[in-house]
């Protein structure tokens, strides 16, 4: 089992400034999964509760001289502590950036087995190495034992089933203000109803025995299946409008945890250019897909993808 690559400048920037801060908020521990073509950061894929998040990168968008080999079809996966990874990367960058003028080889990342101090058992590490003009710096990030063939297979299957797309996606309102709003909303209750209509309405609501608090965002951009607005629903209240759309089959509704919803919004730390909300078929989960543009264009950057799946609290109600 071998893994070795050099981080590109773009890869360093993307990981350090955007992806790792965002993913760190999703949970401390994640699976890091490398294949011949891709690198994945996966949260909660093997357990049913909690927000699942999938960050996928074409290896070229992070690395150059990417070498991977394993007896399991060149796939390697392990668990890693993201805050340690982030810290190690930041610390090595401080040295690397100072010495990069003399540094032709770049910042190397590789999988190693080492004997830690006071131990007789060699342990696996993900190691960063920067060779400067006069010195070399190494940062070892402890990782779990690489996953067994069966576990990698399970992770791969979970990953494939997490790619299921909703029939309708609506473009989220401006993420910072949505995040701000949900942050305040979470003081009021714990369960949030999320409704998405094919005419581009997103409706969020917390309802308890003491209060109903909601927000309706209308005329959002729709991807996938769409429906025309019904004449005469303009004068209705937000609640009635979405209830009628659900009855007509033009909208779906799920209940999720407010905490999960807020957590997924923290992916905005990765500075996506847009986000889309959708509900998986049969209301299985709420999906939020973050979109990244190729820098300087309005075209989707297909080499990066990030999406979250929020577990539904009461699957029977829909």
């Amino acid at each position: 089992m071998k893994f070795k690559a050099f981080l590109t400048d773009n890869g360093i920037n993307l990981l350090e400034k955007r992806i790792l801060p965002a993913l760190d908020k999703m949970g401390k521990i994640c699976h890091l999964y490398f294949t011949r073509d891709h690198a994945f950061f996966l949260h909660n894929l093997l357990n049913a509760d909690g927000v699942q998040s999938v960050a996928q990168f074409k290896q070229q968008s992070l690395f150059h001289d990417y070498r991977i080999s394993s007896q399991n079809d060149d796939k390697i996966a392990f668990c890693i502590d993201l805050s340690l990874l982030h810290r190690a990367l930041r610390s090595i960058l401080a040295i690397y950036v100072e010495s990069r003028d003399f540094n032709s080889s770049g910042l190397q990342i590789k999988l190693v087995k080492k004997l830690p101090p006071h131990s007789t058992q060699p342990m696996p590490f993900l190691t960063f190495e920067a060779k400067g003009h006069k010195s070399a710096v190494v940062q070892d990030v402890p990782i779990s034992k690489p996953l067994s063939r069966a576990d990698v297979q399970e992770l791969q299957l979970a990953l494939e089933s997490a790619q299921e797309m909703p029939a309708t996606l609506v473009r989220a309102p401006e993420l910072n203000s949505l995040q701000n709003f949900v942050d305040r909303m979470k003081h009021v209750g714990e369960v949030m109803g999320v409704s998405i209509s094919k005419c581009g309405d997103l409706h969020l609501q917390i309802s308890t025995s003491l209060i109903t608090l909601g927000a309706e965002f209308r005329r959002l951009m729709v991807l996938g299946e769409r429906a025309d607005r019904v004449v005469g629903d303009e004068g209705l209240s937000a609640q009635t409008r979405i209830e009628r759309a659900v009855q007509r089959g033009d909208a779906m509704n799920v209940q999720v945890s407010v905490k999960h919803f807020f957590k997924s919004l923290q992916c905005s730390l990765a500075r996506p250019d847009a986000a889309f909300y959708g509900i998986a078929p049969q209301g299985a989960c709420l999906i939020v897909i973050f979109q990244f543009f190729v820098p300087g264009t309005r075209q989707t950057d297909k080499s990066i993808s990030l999406h979250c799946r929020l577990p539904v609290l009461d699957p029977g109600s829909n």
Binding site: T212, A215, F217, R218
Partner: peptide
């Protein structure tokens, strides 16, 4: 704001 509305009813 015509395209977004926040509402609440408090018992």
């Amino acid at each position: 704001c015509p395209d977004s509305c926040i509402y609440a009813d408090i018992r």
